[in-house]
Design a protein around this nucleic acid. Structure first.
Lengths: 183, 183
DNA sequence: ACTCCATACCTAGATGTCGAGGTATCTTGG
DNA sequence: CCAAGATACCTCGACATCTAGGTATGGAGT
């Protein structure tokens, strides 16, 4: 998730680590803050993997900055990760949101639509939490008010997102030439 | 998060590991599946910490079952973790949902309300993602449709939850005797 | 000169999780 | 009688993350 955020931000423009740190914090920091000790090793991993290049420049305000630029391999990797996200990026809201934040980096509307459809399929598919066997649950089926809330919130958010996904897929449809990507 | 789920389920009744595995899967499995290699070591950790006791019984269907029972220390620990959740349990939706699923185990409405208030404070406090300095953002402020969606969904879910939190806090209020827990 | 602070990057140890295996028990069907 | 499959628990190595530190630079205030 962090790696995708790093790559996603760098796809737009070269940034130094500290600026990257602030961008990541602005995107997901209020939900789950990222420690320095997580970010900088992640940058090194991506550098070792050849996905980004580092140029040391004198710091404008203080210590020298390491400006990070995506390599061609890095740009390809961003697109690959967005095009074929692991299942947990579809199901886990935190990861899904990160993917969504950078989905515009996929240049084909067909590919973007394919990813949205995966999320839509996941959300519309019966999940154990919302079903008792074949029977759909209702908030009143829970005796405890907190589980009722859990259920109410989860249902409402799910509905909102499904609506948005359907709308967005409809607006993407005319942009897709010829045959769609996947059945 | 996993530990809280384990302790939370065992608070109601003794369960063997395999059944626990299914309960956890039903609660959060569709979002983020838990591997066996994560669950069983977690059980061992909690056992070593003296929070639960293990009784081996002949399996009703197959291999012998290890029935897990919370110790008094374990019951106290559940309440402690629910009463004083780490900040990430308030901010991260996945963790918050697990906390909420077991919040009824706090026996005092005042304590329950205090936790709900922490979540409400977090949700109503200006987060970098929703604000540009002092100015609240709108979906139209984002040029890219996917970020617009991100924003729309996040705003809608946040509003739904805030409404529920306010309602539930109001319904808890008359149950709270004398002075509230914390300022 | 001096200290303080924000900037900017880093390391080391501990820990939780995952993936990919493995083992043992009991039931069911051929 | 034997194989297959579900049940039930486990280990091990790899890896990402967190905590808790550390180091160095430059500017602002005293």
């Amino acid at each position: 998730m962090l790696e995708l955020a790093i790559l996603g931000f760098l796809f737009d423009e070269a940034l130094h680590g500290y600026e990257l740190r602030n961008r990541v914090a602005a995107l997901t920091g209020h939900v789950r803050p990222i420690a320095d000790g997580t970010l900088y090793p992640a940058i090194k991993r991506l550098e070792r993997a050849g996905l980004l290049r580092r140029d040391v420049r004198p710091g404008s305000a203080a210590a020298p900055r390491h400006v990070l630029t995506l390599t061609p391999a890095g740009r390809a990797e961003v697109r690959r990760r967005l095009r074929e996200p692991d299942e947990v990026f579809i199901t886990d809201e935190n990861r899904w949101f990160t993917a969504l934040a950078f989905l515009r980096h996929l240049d084909s509307p067909a590919e973007q639509a394919a990813v949205l459809r995966r999320r839509l399929t996941f959300l519309t598919q019966p999940a154990s939490f919302f079903w008792d066997g074949d029977r759909p649950l209702r908030a009143a089926d829970f005796d405890d008010p907190f589980r009722q809330g859990l259920f109410t919130i989860a249902t409402a958010t799910s509905r909102t997102e499904i609506r948005w996904l359907r709308q967005t897929l409809a607006s993407l449809a005319p942009l897709i030439e010829s045959a769609p990507v996947a059945p």
